[in-house]
Design a protein around this nucleic acid. Structure first.
Lengths: 363, 363
DNA sequence: TTGTACGCGTTATCAT
DNA sequence: ATGATAACGCGTACAA
């Protein structure tokens, strides 16, 4: 039913060339009379320009791909929303590619996007980092090499790739200093007087997890505190919940810092449900500044996801030589209601009023 | 740099026809020797088949679109994930289309997908329902008519459209009985002995909101209770939070039921933060069974989003005459920890023990 | 201002 | 088993 340009031209009694010029945004002049005839004919046959054919001849697919771990994860969803917003306004299509962080799936999707001649692809998440001593190390290395090779091939074809976190292949980068962000939130929590602070990590082997953990450890070291209460997590609510459940049986820590907001909300919610007063008894902090974090009043650090997605997309569309080097956006500490000054340790459970020691008060 | 089929053929000393047959999944026989020569040449030039060209000649774009309100909303994210999962396994691309429920944007996206000859489009959310007395009623009606017309045109072109909620255009449907789901959760809450139960609605004018509100009202009526404490909401966390804040100053209701999980989590979190015991003092229930609802132990009703997305996508791919009529999936009440039997009203604030009246205990 | 004709990269038909 | 060649629907020199 979708009339082709040829059909429209025939009905309007003009050549396909003029029809093309009249219907699509061509700077080529067309007389108003003919233009109207064509518009009419187009409406009659319900003409819908074949973006496929246009892409083929124009060599511009108006397609961008966003490779994410899981679109259900707010972190990735916000990035995707940012990218889609600018893509939509430009008449571009946004492909969402869930990979569950599996390099093989990333590779498969990259190839598919290559086949579709996507104009650009955004790697939203971090990548696997060479594991120190893993049994699957060889396979992973090979996968990493394959991906890196594929990225190179894709870039050679003029497809613009930009990554939003550390990856082991070359590409434009629109990132944030994860290590510094983690360092900042940690020092902030320490500055509140907390001494025993736990940490919930992100998935092992992920560059982002590593950077954030490193930031935590560095800040703790600089504060003269021990950073040995590190619980493995997976960036999800469940991880936080499980850690919280384990925490609640024993003497509570002063604070728990999580590698991301999802897991922080997990510990926050679970701890509160267990009757723990947050931030009265223990402070909780995350990292991301996800949309819901604002609502639950979680103190965290903003590492603008939406903006990074939008900027990445814009970079892809502004095909110009704006290939300016990497971009590292500023992060911003967002102190909110889930953290507070440490109360004297004695007052925690027994509610006994103990004067603060000078040492605790100092900074 | 991406070698074309012609180039590969030339380097292998064969015709494009054979190259095509060897490289892509063709049942046509090709001698092993030549097949290898072609594979080699393809590898040398880094051949990547042009899905665009294939789509043009094949008339199969291997593209499906998912029209959602906002991908950041877990409801839509889970639907999208379901669709993408089956699309990916079939080598299809999934386009995300955020519309913020604006009919104009839906229309624009539908047209764009039409241009790309998407093989199918999934309308994930409900639609605007003819408002009783609105000033913008005329404009909306026109927009509704336009969309409905566009859907018809698109379907005439062989594009399969399936909606996951009530819409005012014809299409296959993979839905759930929202009214019944809402009725069920409401009667469940009432069966717990609660009498004063508030409701937080979804966005006005939305078919889904209307169905769910109707279910609530019907159940309340059937329970002989008054359903006049209805607070307007927007399906988001903020709505729930605001309602909770308003509730907390005055005598608390027995329970509050929300049109969806997001807003339910909003009231749950906010109420708890305000020191209200859930479900001790007030019960809270939602509707959707979103992923995080499982974690916060919210009682709700499952209206399988992931499955609906997956089924819709499968329907699009199985282009066969499986155009079986509409499908309405079963919903399932999921009682969890945010609801409990009503405690005697007197014990709520003053903790005064008052014997339950027979009337309260009866059912 | 309008029309002709070629090419974009593939698949498919028909010979060979 | 392999090879020409005609579409697919459109943009765009180039010609008129």
């Amino acid at each position: 039913m979708a009339g082709s340009l040829a059909e429209v031209a025939r009905r309007a009694g003009v050549s396909v060339a003029t029809a093309s010029r009249a219907l699509n945004g061509s700077r080529h002049p067309v007389s108003d009379e003919i233009r109207e005839r064509i518009a009419l004919a187009a409406a009659e046959v319900g003409y819908a320009p074949s973006a496929i054919a246009q892409a083929l001849v124009t060599r511009k697919s108006r397609i961008i791909g966003v490779i994410v771990g899981d679109i259900v994860d707010p972190y990735f969803a916000e990035i995707t929303r940012g990218a889609e917003d600018v893509a939509r306004r430009a008449g571009y299509l946004t492909i969402v590619c869930n990979t569950d962080r599996a390099p093989a799936t990333e590779l498969a999707y990259l190839r598919l996007l290559h086949d579709y001649r996507a104009e650009g692809v955004i790697f939203a998440g971090g990548g696997q980092v060479a594991a120190g001593a893993g049994s699957a190390s060889a396979a992973q290395l090979s996968e990493g090499a394959q991906l890196s090779e594929a990225v190179e091939s894709v870039r050679a074809d003029g497809i613009r790739v930009v990554s939003l976190a550390a990856r082991n292949f070359e590409s434009m980068r629109v990132t944030v200093d994860d290590r510094a962000a983690s360092y900042d939130i940690t020092s902030y929590v320490c500055s509140l007087g907390h001494r025993r602070v736990c940490y919930v990590t992100g998935p092992p082997g992920l560059s982002t997890s590593a950077a954030r953990l490193a930031g935590f450890q560095a800040a703790m070291a600089d504060a003269g505190l021990s950073a040995d209460e590190v619980h493995p997590g997976e960036f999800d609510f469940l991880s936080g919940q499980q850690v919280a459940l384990r925490l609640v049986g024993r003497p509570l820590p002063d604070a728990v810092i999580c590698a991301n907001d999802e897991s922080a909300i997990g510990v926050l919610t679970t701890l509160r449900q267990a009757g723990v007063d947050i931030p009265g008894e223990v402070s909780v902090a995350g990292l991301d500044d996800t949309r819901v974090s604002r609502f639950v009043d979680l103190t965290t650090v903003s590492v603008p996801m939406y903006e990074r997605g939008a900027i990445a997309a814009r970079h892809i569309l502004d095909a110009g030589p704006s290939a300016a080097g990497d971009l590292v956006l500023p992060h911003r500490l967002v102190p909110r209601g889930t953290t507070a000054r440490r109360r004297s340790s004695g007052s925690k459970r027994q509610r006994r009023e103990t004067p603060l020691t000078a040492a605790t008060e100092a900074r």
